[in-house]
Structures are given as C-alpha cells and as structure tokens.
Design a protein around this nucleic acid. Structure first.
Length: 228
DNA sequence: GCGACAG
DNA sequence: ATCTTGTCGC
C-alpha cells in the first residue's frame, strides 16, 4: 500500500544520477538466454533491517526437484543508501554478495526477492546480482514496479504478461495460489522467461511464495531476532 | 505540473 | 523494508 507516502527527505539528485549511470553500464552486460548448465541447485535470498542502518542478508540453497534443504548463510553489514525506487540493488546487493561468498554449495541459479528486467531501465536487483556474480538469476517480486498487466485468473497457475508501454514483455504475472495477490516474475541475467516461470512454479508448495524466497524471508526474520 | 514508486 | 492487534474469509 504505497498510495500515500509520508513526505520524506528528497533523495539527493546528484547521487541518483551517479547510480543511474552505473546501472546503465551494468545493463550492457545482461544476457537473457536460457541457463547453460544443468539446474540442480537453486538459491533464494532476502534482506531484513535489524536497525535503519544495518542490513542482514540471507542466502539459502535447495536441491531440485525435491526442494530439499542444503544450506543457509547470512551476513550483516551497513546500509549504504536510503531506499530509492529503481535503485534498490545499490542498497542491498553489496551485503548480499558478502552473504553469497559464505555459501559452500554454489547454486546453478538464484531466485531473487525483487524484479529482474521488469525495471524502468531493465536493471532490477535480480539482473544486477546476476551480472556481478555472473550466475543465472531471475526475480520474483510481490509488487509491481513498472509495466502494465491484466489481472490473471484467480486460480493457481494463471499467468498474464507484464509489458512496457511499447508492448515489450518485461515479465509475467503469476497467480501462485488461489485468490491471493499474484507474483511478478522476470528474467535477471543468463536466464529466459520460460526458465524463470518454470522454476517459480516448480518451487511452489502450497504457499504464495516459492520455497527459495519464502525460506530466505523466514530466516532473514529469524536471524534478525537472534541479534536483538 | 501531477502521479507512480521492488524492498 | 519496518512499525503493529485484532479480525475476516476459506
């Protein structure tokens, strides 16, 4: 519900320009072909904020197709930026990279909590992480950032396209559970839409969120409590 | 000029 | 994301 946003401090325009440029540079490295290797291990990641200037990031790894649990790691660090729509990756990616480095099992693909190319400049956090790690990634977001779509049918598995104003497909809107708000799935890096959608559906276990992000969400909250 | 705006 | 209690629907 971000219909009304309390008038907060306006983000420094100089800083916004700076990061937008970095984003446009990273964008040139994004590739959207299907993952080349076999997809046996899938990772999920998420971040929570124990304090306004501390970010806690989690990475978990599951085995496919059983969704059996393999491992979970986390890392705590400083928050480099305030939240600015469109620049989320610069706020969370640095710490996520530190968490990723702690994994013993390298995943074949990563399901990221947020958008992939369904972003104003096609560089959502999933694409950003994919490029920096050079690992296949795709995004699963709970809310729309950009693009237009038709509400998918209320039954689980219903899908409609998410497109930009030129009709270009940015992702797919997926009903992951009967009568609950749909998910926004889009490719990140070294991943195509078909793979992103197929894996999202393959990771559903009766909940709205697919297991990788649901568990990452869970542990991000759990570890946060442990700190307090 | 007026909204919209991942997590 | 975070702050927060009870409450409506399946």
């Amino acid at each position: 519900m971000a219909y009304f946003r309390p008038p907060g401090p306006a983000p420094d325009p100089q800083l916004v320009r700076e990061f937008t440029q970095l984003q446009d540079q990273l964008r040139t490295q994004v590739r959207l072909e299907p993952p080349s290797s076999e997809l046996r291990y899938i990772a999920g990641c998420d971040s929570s904020f124990p304090t306004p200037d501390t970010v806690l990031s989690v990475f978990i790894v599951l085995e496919l197709p059983s969704l059996g649990f393999i491992e979970k790691v986390y890392h705590v660090g400083p928050v480099p930026l305030p939240y600015i729509p469109g620049l989320l990756s610069f706020r969370e990616a640095p710490n996520l990279l530190h968490a990723y480095a702690k994994l013993r099992r390298q995943p074949d693909i990563i399901m990221v909590d947020g958008h992939g190319i369904a972003h104003p400049r096609r560089m959502g956090i999933a694409a950003h992480l994919g490029v920096e790690l050079d690992v296949p990634t795709f995004g699963v977001a709970k809310e729309r950032l950009t693009g237009v779509y038709e509400e998918p049918a209320l039954t689980k598995g219903s899908i409609t396209p998410l497109t930009d104003k030129n009709g270009e497909r940015l992702g797919q809107v997926i009903r992951s559970k009967d009568k609950v708000k749909p998910l926004f799935v889009s490719p990140g890096h070294r991943c195509d839409q078909a793979t992103a959608t197929r894996l999202t559906l393959a990771c559903l276990r009766g909940y709205k969120l697919p297991e990788p992000t649901r568990l990452a969400d869970h542990w991000a909250e759990e570890f946060k409590k442990e700190l307090k």
